[in-house]
Structure formats: structure tokens, C-alpha cells
Design a protein around this nucleic acid. Sequence first.
RNA 1: GGCCCCGUGGUGUAGCGGUCUAACAUGCCUCCCUGUCACGGAGGAGAUCGGCGGUUCGAAUCCGCUCGGGGUCGCCA
Length: 590
Amino acid sequence: MSLTRRTPCGTVRTEQVGSDVDLYGWVHRRRDLGGLIFIDLRDRSGIVQVKFDPVHAQAHAAGGGLRSESVIHVRGPVRVRPPGTENKELSTGAVEVEAHAVDLLNRAQPPPFAVNEDGAVDEQLRLRYRYLDLRRSRMARNLQLRHRMTKAIRDFLDDQGFVEIETPVLIRSTPEGARDYLVPSRLKPGHVYALAQSPQLYKQLLMVAGMDRYFQIVRCYRDEDQRADRQPEFTQLDLEMSFVGEDDVLDVIERCFAHIWKQVLNVDVPTPIRRITHAEALRRYGVDKPDLRYGLEIEELSAIFATTEFKIFRQALDSGGVVRGIRIPRNVGGKEIEALTEVARAEGAKGLAFWHREPNGWRSPITKFFSDGELTGLAQATGAQPDDVVVAVADRAEVAAAALGSVRKAAAGPLGLIKDGNFEFVWVTEFPLFERSKETGEVTAAHHPFTSPRPEDLPLLDSEPLRVRARAYDLVLNGTELGSGSIRIHDPEMQQRVFNGLGISREDAERKFGFLLNAFRYGAPPHGGFAYGLDRVVMLAAGEETIREVIAFPKNQQAEEVMTDAPAPADPKQLRELGLQLMPRPPQAR
RNA sequence: GGCCCCGUGGUGUAGCGGUCUAACAUGCCUCCCUGUCACGGAGGAGAUCGGCGGUUCGAAUCCGCUCGGGGUCGCCA
């Protein structure tokens, strides 16, 4: 069996007609006509039809016994298919291979689910037999798409003068950020490494080291609960540049996306990608990662109802709140309104006001509470046409934004406003530097503690830190946050001021980040960068709903890898070596 | 931890108080078939309906608990 003579299944063409080929692959499907037998033979390159004619008795006999997913070797000449029997669905459809010799290399049991079709199969089962699942066209296509994407990224960044440099995975744990995966040290008992959540600090130090333009396609680890777009280990495209401002970073990133979208999907991404400030995103779309594939913009209606006597609006406005609404360009029924009301309530709104626009006025249970002027204003502000519906929330600005942001998202699908293959990129800029933690009430870094404040907001740093805006930006695609970046602090005194704002004392900062502050005292260039989730990018490019569909061996919601059954119970011998002892489990746990 | 959805032959679904001795498609097994390509035809095997408990004369179907999976909120500097 000489693999050098192998012809990939999907590459057989009319040029090879008459010459013998050696095919190696999996039996995709068998069609036994009694005399003639046809087999679709599959490998990564595609599918080719193999013909078993009774004239070649030995091969024909072997062909009759072949089962789906068995691995075989076939030798024989390429033939032109008889006129009228070509298959336009296959790249190899003009020809077929006439089997003269067949080797059964591995006989397959019937697989637990159909490998030769892409129908729905329980995900747990797919993951347990992932090696079979990866044979199916959907996953094979996704993994190859992912490869082409990482290659396009490397090609582009190399061309732009970036150097790919690996950084440590076993690093010092820092308290900020997500929960760390810890790795105990054998050589230093009682000490632990953390698996890197990102190469953030190392890449900044590479800038201090004069590497100028760095990137890395890098695995990152975060021990948090799973989501459709979150895995405990995921891959980032991480990059950092010296002597740059926001526009330089955004420019490289958007040209990078334009390049890979063109290379991989043959889709043009218009550049520059539009920008919207964080504050404007919240006002117009209710979220900091707006989906711009559809309109349904949130309208500010507070002025129209400034003197309203409608009690619910009155109370909201009097206590400093707002009235905002969305025009829904269709007559949605009571059931749909009810569903949207539930969506709004889930975000803390007390309810959802709604009016049906009619040729001469409005129809709604609450119309009677409003003056003609208010209703005219409503029509003008929303541009509502007859048969449209306007929904509104009166509440604190944050609640109204969140509620209408959710309503907007929930309404778009049923209204048929989301078209397949539509990619709407948008930069969200001017993020706040700090935010207040919902549960502890402490001030934390909105992005990370190394993000530079905007110079014009520096006077607010000590007095009103929550109003300080950062030189930070997110890239959003179709309502999914792809990644974020910022211009970093490169001055030790500024870094210390921001640490102060975060309640990190000088001693704390020296202990945890002394190496960084130290480095900044030896000639640190101004620098900034970006990182995005490669899995999410591939997911969106592949039209998938979860990143598990673009990861070869993902983990489930319990962070288990069900094929190998990881994690597994700790071996006492390993624990002894590490100087570790397990605590007894609390009785209520499992 | 909260909320929501889903567990029925190998796979995917239907059935949602009695007619279920559980249906359909596909896969599997046997036989027929020389131009199929989701080949076709005939026949066959295969599920006590995730588990436990309850309601009921009667439960796949209703209720409770539980196990497993997924989505989401919290969390993700």
C-alpha cells in the first residue's frame, strides 16, 4: 500500500480518464443494484463514485460486503460516466472509478448515528463519538474554514510586519478578572500557577522589549460558567503595537477582518467600519454590543410626554427617569405584545406600553390618557405608519435601555428582519474606564486595569472616576462581541493613579504588578492592542449558533470532555507528589 | 445558585389519560434487482416511553422529586 500513489477522492477528474488511480477512504454510501454496485467513497477532499462490475468478480464480491464507514483501498481505472448519468452535485460527478482491486483496511461497525448526513443528533452523543461527528460534512467544513481563517490571519499580520511570539501558559495568578484554573507546583509545595486568561501583561512587556508589533493565536483559560459562546479554554487572536493611537489599532484590525472575510468567505467588508460611542450604543440600541443587521432603533420620547398626566409615565419622569420606545413596522398581535412584555419585565421594566397606529389616530388601552398633542408627537417622533405598533418603557434610563434592547432583539427574528449571510461590523468606542460592581458595589476596571483614560477626562479621575472614559474599544459583529482592546498606560505614575482608583494600594500594586511598574521605568513605548475570540469569529463566519461547532473537541456545559471523561478523579499518588490533600465534600454537594 | 426548554427502538421524530400489544422516517438483518447517486422492491428484528414515587379503575401522556443534556441570568478584569 503505497500512499505516494494515493489520489484524493474529491480530486478525480476527466483528465485522469483511462489511467489507474489508488483511492483510500471511507464508504460513504452503497447502492447495490443486484448486478452493478456503486459506492460513494469519501475522504477529506470529497466524494467519488466507485463502480463494481460483476465482470471483475473478485472486486464485485468484495464490494457487496462493504459497510458504511469501513475504510478501503480501491484500485482501478477512471472512466467517463455514460451520457445522462453524470452527477452535477459532485465535483467528481463526470467520472467514476471502476474497481479492479479492493482492500478492506478496517471494517466498521454501524455507527451510533448517521455519518453520511448532517441531520440533528443529540449533542452529548456527538461529543462522545466526536471522531465520527468530525467526519460529517458540517464539522469537516467548519474545521477547514477555521484553518483557512487562521492562515489568512497569519498571512495578513505577517505582511503587516507583526511577529508571532509565544507567551507562557503557566503564569502567576492575579486576583482580577475571571476565576483562574490553578496548577499546583510540585517543586514548590504550597505554590500554584494559574493558566493564562490572556497574554495581556506579557504582550505589554514585549512592547517594552521593543518587539514593536506582536501577535499570537493563543489558547486562554477561564474557569467560569459556560455559554453558547464561552468555553473554559478558547482561542484568541491577540495583538499589540507600539507607538500607536486608537485609529492605528482599529485600522489594522478592520483591514485584518476585511482580508479574512474576502479570503475565506469572498465577502467584502466595507472599511472603515462604522463607529459608535458606548453612550450612543446604549441610547439607540440599549446594549453595548448592538446588532446592526436591522433597525428598530430606540427613540427618546421623554420630551413628548414631559407634561403628561398618564400616571405611569408621570412617575417615571418625575423621579428622573425616561420614556423611550421602539416603532415596530408591523401590526403585531396581542400574543406577541405579551411575549415582548415578558422580555421587558425580565430586564426589570414594570411593563410595556403599546399603541397600534391606525389611519386616523391610535388604538390602545391607554390612548385615552394622552392628549392629542402627545399622540401627534408620538407619531412624529417614531414615524409610525398605519398598521405599525409602538412599544414604550418608562423607567430609569438604564432599565429602559436594557428592556428595550431586549425587546428589540426579541422582535427582530419574528419580524424576519435578520437576513442570512449579512455581516454588520461596528466599533463601540469610548467605554467607561471604571464600573461599579453590581454585587459588591466596588469600583472595578471596565476593561482591565492597564487601560489608558482619555486625556480630556483626566481631571475627573479622582473626583468622579465613574465618569472617566477610557481609550478602549470593542468590535461587535451581528450583536456578538468579538473582542476588545485599548491604548494602554505606559507611565508608572499614571498606572498608579488608576490602581488607586481601583482601590489597589501602592504596596498591593508593587507586590502584584511590581514587574510591570518596574518595566515602565526602563523606557516603555506608548502602546495599544486588541484581542478577539477566534472561536466566535469562526462561529459567525460558519453561520453556527455555538462555538462548540467550530472546536474539534469542546467541553459541555459542565466543562466536561465527554469522550475522554475529563476531568477525572485525582490519583492519590499524584496528590501526594503535589503535597495536596482533598477536603471532605460538604454533605449537600452531590 | 435562579429561571426556561428537552429526554419515546441505533438515529431523528409523532403520540400528550383508555382505541399504545406505542406510530412514522431512516439505519440494521435477509431476499430480489446491471446505471444508481437520499437507488428501488419484498420481508424481518429492534423501544416496558431517562429514573423513582404519587394521582387514577387505567399513565408515554397528569403531579412531585430526581438524573442527564441544552439555553439564559448571575459570573466572564
